[in-house]
Write a protein that binds this DNA or RNA. Structure first.
Lengths: 229, 229
DNA sequence: ACCTGAACACCGTTCAAGT
DNA sequence: ACCTGAACACCGTTCAAGT
């Protein structure tokens, strides 16, 4: 088959991709007693441990259960399937990052263009690298899940915060705030990921920390109506 | 290398993320007769078909073999494991994209900053979107493989082409070409991926096509020594 | 030289039986 | 309520037997 045929096939079968509806990824039932609450957190932490020590490819349900000190059956009482384990971990991680972005956007509300650009970039970099410097674990986890809804929620919150920040800049105005918001968010998320995946050495991180603020500032200045005052 | 050696290596590598050494991902043996050449291409194309019609999660070895019209045993004669199937598909796809970048870098050799920036960005966008507009298939494939070496090779070729292009710009100079090359490459790869993953609708693609050239140009102007002549 | 497909090992998931 | 772990279905991989 030629690659040119792939487009048609792709469009015809576009709806096949989501394997598991997002709703089904949440914990199966809420714990009602102290004992089971401890079980749930133990499973949650065991997932993180196995993920970091053994890697995504060797993360099996029995291994997580063993690490958590429970049987597989117990695990399935609270998490409907393996994906739910990972979903919970990713959910928590993404929330931390989004909160960091929202806080930065609030802190730099009304700040001048260059200052707020650097503040936003550094806040994102710090959040991404705080606990897992150079770790690709979140990306490998996300790749195995149907994260459409989760990611969509996260991006909506992020975009709302960034748009409000951009609108508050005193020394610049933007004709199309939605487009600039999209560009800035894509720039942050994309470059950090691409950078980490290609090379997560300290030297590469240093490059990223130096060049990304430059990229963001330069773009914002170029995109602002009539340049910076 | 004998396959029995690989199994030992696999078990020795028990403690780290890369599950399979990249060398082992290539086809197991070269076909010596016309019949088996046809078999290999049939398997290769069947992998693409199953990937696009059923998605990564439902791509099984038996399904690919069935689609290719051969038995599983035959498949394993040419591809040492499932990952090798996907590796071959990804390898071909990435090569197409890299060639497109290299061609663009040659074409815009000696062109002025803005012209060459736009040329490079558009060449990358066209290559990524030519056959699979908005498709995430390459990313989902890559996520399941140990692609360290493959990606490393691709990035090396890309960086060499971009660095040569940057050095040839007549109306601007760069103090640290390596850093700017890293930044431009990361910007291209990262933003396109992040954009596609968040929203692959025509509207989002249009935004990307408009904002990415702006980002790249603005960054290059800002990074050039003493500004554009 | 190339192909076949039953057999094996392993993993995700369930459920009857326990406290 | 909560937990257990043998049992089941499915998938990646192999190998003795075929042409």
């Amino acid at each position: 088959m030629l690659y040119s045929d792939m487009r048609i096939i792709l469009q015809l079968l576009h709806s096949h991709m989501p394997v598991v509806p997002t709703d089904a990824l949440k914990p199966r039932k809420s714990p009602r007693q102290a004992r089971s609450t401890a079980t749930v957190t133990a499973i949650h932490e065991a997932t993180i441990q196995v993920l970091l020590s053994d890697g995504m490819a060797r993360l099996t349900t029995t291994r997580v259960a063993q690490r958590a000190g429970v049987s597989v059956g117990t695990m399935y009482q609270y998490f409907p399937h393996k994906q739910a384990l990972l979903y919970a971990v990713l959910d928590q991680y993404l929330d931390e990052v989004v909160v960091a972005i929202e806080e930065a956007c609030t802190r730099y509300q009304g700040a001048r263009l260059c200052e707020m650009s650097d503040g936003l970039v550094n806040a994102y970099l710090n959040a991404k690298l705080r606990y897992l410097p150079g770790s690709l674990a979140p990306y490998t986890v996300a790749a195995d899940l149907d994260t459409a809804r989760l990611i969509s929620d996260v991006l909506q919150r992020t975009d709302r915060a960034i748009a409000r920040l951009l609108a508050s800049v005193p020394d610049a105005g933007f004709d199309d705030i939605a487009a600039v918001t999209f560009a800035v968010r894509t720039l942050l998320v994309g470059t950090v990921r691409a950078s980490l995946e290609s090379d997560s050495s300290p030297a590469a991180l240093a490059m990223l920390r130096k060049q990304l603020p430059l990229m963001c500032r330069a773009y914002l200045v170029a995109a602002s109506r009539g340049g910076v005052a």
